[in-house]
Write a protein that binds this DNA or RNA. Structure first.
Lengths: 207, 207
DNA sequence: GAAAGATGTGAATGGTGGTTCACTTCTTTC
DNA sequence: GAAAGAAGTGAACCACCATTCACATCTTTC
């Protein structure tokens, strides 16, 4: 035997793969999925098109990984806020604020994750991640119903509506230019809408 | 001169075009945009692939026409209900019910219109039609705010949330098999959610 | 019925972009 | 430093499908 991957070499390969995913993410955020060709992505990472296939079996697999990493971060952040301290309605409001703020701070990527046309494999992944958002929202809503701060309702329907509604509200600002003149106003209206949607008492929690 | 399109011939051509659009709509409802190739669509209409180009300059133009016709019908129906008689909240509830029922009765088409991956031209059309839904919802919400039956709120945000929320709630049932076991339950929860989202008094209109 | 002019046909064409592969370059082991 | 094996290269390849076009067929007019 005359060659065995040394630990350092393995780390180097993993780093190269990470770098490829990061660069691909940047390209997707910049030009969208449709324009992110293998050549363009490889070019951005400073490698040849063929080298992409050292790390991923297909373009679709790379695209899925890009989506998964970026969307996974968002699910995680939202989950931490929604499962954090405070009453359910307050956590819901905080979650919506955090989600929207992060999207508005990284519009290209948020648009790619939420709405941009993509190949079927990415579409399937998107569907899957939406289910995770729904599960997170549903959990908070159920807690609110249980402790009486939210009225009886189908938590799954409310969660789905929140997921879709927040996305739709954000898509327009994300798609247009980056004039965030009244993003504070938008955040306030969005959280107010989310609380109404879950039936939270507008006067705030009863002590 | 030896040939001039006779009125009957013109009618025949228009009928052929209509038939093509109808068949294409059926194919799209059945297999989605991505699988609806020119050959498949032409085959469904009983004409040769080349003949499609007698009626449309490109596949994209045909796809846009398919979308426009089907989505236009939905916008029209929703508009009639939302602008019909009754108090704003009641109209909103009726509109949501009608929209959801129609979607559930024609799942394949509804899914194609709402969510299925599509070429950019169709995506743009979809965006445009969503704006129409939003405009319709926003009008009702503004009326409700004006007559005091709905609380003060940003009508555009609420309208966007309704558009996205209703779509998201419906996508899951549309995507899965056609087991409409509890579609009545779903409709009730969906309208209840929409009313909460707009801040309607759960006890109903004050006389 | 014959000429003119349109529609209908479907196999050939062409552009796009993901994927492959013979080859080069680098890394490890002895 | 030389052999063995892996990663990296990028031009060539290929599948897919919308689009075209030379030809056939049908409609109108005289």
């Amino acid at each position: 035997m005359a060659y065995r991957k040394t630990p350092a070499e393995i780390r180097r390969l993993e780093a190269a793969r990470d770098r490829l995913v990061d660069c691909a993410t940047a390209v997707v955020a910049e030009v969208g999925w449709a324009q992110a060709s293998v050549t363009a992505v490889a070019g951005a990472a400073g490698i040849a098109a063929g080298s992409v296939y050292q790390h991923f079996p297909s373009k679709a697999a790379l695209a899925v990984e890009v989506f998964r990493r970026a969307a996974g971060r968002e699910v995680e952040v939202l989950g931490e806020v929604l499962r954090g301290p405070g009453d359910p309605a307050g956590r819901l409001a905080a979650g919506v604020r955090v989600f929207a703020r992060r999207a508005l701070e990284n519009r290209g990527l948020a648009y790619a994750l939420l709405a941009a046309p993509a190949e079927p494999a990415v579409g399937a992944e998107r569907l899957d991640h939406r289910l995770r958002y729904r599960a997170l929202f549903a959990e908070v809503v159920r807690e609110g119903i249980a402790d009486g701060t939210l009225p009886p309702q189908d938590a799954e329907v409310t969660a789905a509506a929140l997921t879709g509604g927040i996305g739709e509200v954000l898509v327009a600002p994300l798609g247009t230019a980056d004039d965030d003149g009244d993003s504070g106003e938008l955040l306030a209206e969005l959280t107010a809408m989310a609380l109404r949607c879950a039936g939270a008492d507008p006067a705030g929690p009863h002590p």
